[in-house]
């Protein structure tokens, strides 16, 4: 266990877990669908910074270090503090969103993480939305799934996160939030078909 793992674990145990339980009152539906073994790819709708916190909070503390939320480098590496914080506490896998070159291509980095036994958390909407409707999914997640078809994909729908802590706000309001976890699936087909299937899987959880 590295020093970073220890800091992350402590921060989750003492701050974020109690925050999720006592302040947010997080409800979880479909906990039985959480995969017991890594690697897997978790995809979810995105409307708040609480999304990542809640998803990481679902797992036992000892498994935290195997989870990598895939995050936009242009946002999470915007200054030294945010970068150090998100790498230490959330263990993010920073990827480039714009002007992608061979060197900055996120796909090989995500593949490498999966091959190293780490699971990925992806928000295929690409950015935080209003929380009212799902935005069109980008194709990055599908590209990854096409390359690693053996890795199970867990669809998740997050409720009320964008009401509690919307984009641009820094103080959360304790609306009850919910995580709806769908059964793990494997997807086949071309990139467009997989993207559509992912969107359908998340939408189905929304309409439960």
């Amino acid at each position: 266990m590295t020093a970073r793992d220890l800091v992350q674990l402590t921060f989750f145990a003492l701050v974020l877990r109690p925050f999720l339980t006592l302040f947010i009152g997080l409800r979880v539906r479909g906990r039985e669908h959480l995969p017991q073994s890594a690697p897997f790819i978790m995809i979810a709708n995105h409307s708040s910074h609480l999304d990542t916190v809640s998803l990481l909070g679902l797992f036992p503390l000892r498994k935290l270090s195997q989870l990598r939320p895939v995050a936009a480098a242009d946002y999470f590496e915007r200054n030294a503090f945010v970068s150090a914080f998100s790498k230490t506490v959330f263990n993010i896998l920073p990827i480039t969103r714009k002007k992608i070159t061979t060197d900055t291509n996120p796909l090989p980095r995500m593949e490498a993480a999966l091959h190293a036994g780490q699971s990925l958390i992806l928000f295929p909407e690409g950015t935080r939305g209003s929380g009212e409707d799902l935005a069109r999914f980008h194709s990055g997640a599908a590209h990854l799934i096409e390359k690693c078809p053996e890795v199970p994909v867990v669809p998740v729908y997050l409720v009320n996160m964008g009401r509690s802590l919307p984009k641009g706000e820094w103080i959360p309001v304790p609306f009850f939030c919910e995580v709806r976890i769908g059964p793990p699936q494997k997807f086949q087909g071309n990139c467009r078909e997989i993207t559509a299937a992912l969107e359908t899987a998340v939408r189905q959880l929304r309409d439960l």
Binding site: G25, N160, V173, P174, F175, F176
Partner: peptide
């Protein structure tokens, strides 16, 4: 907690 339930 009661307020949370109502506000939600």
């Amino acid at each position: 907690w009661a307020l949370k339930e109502y506000i939600t």
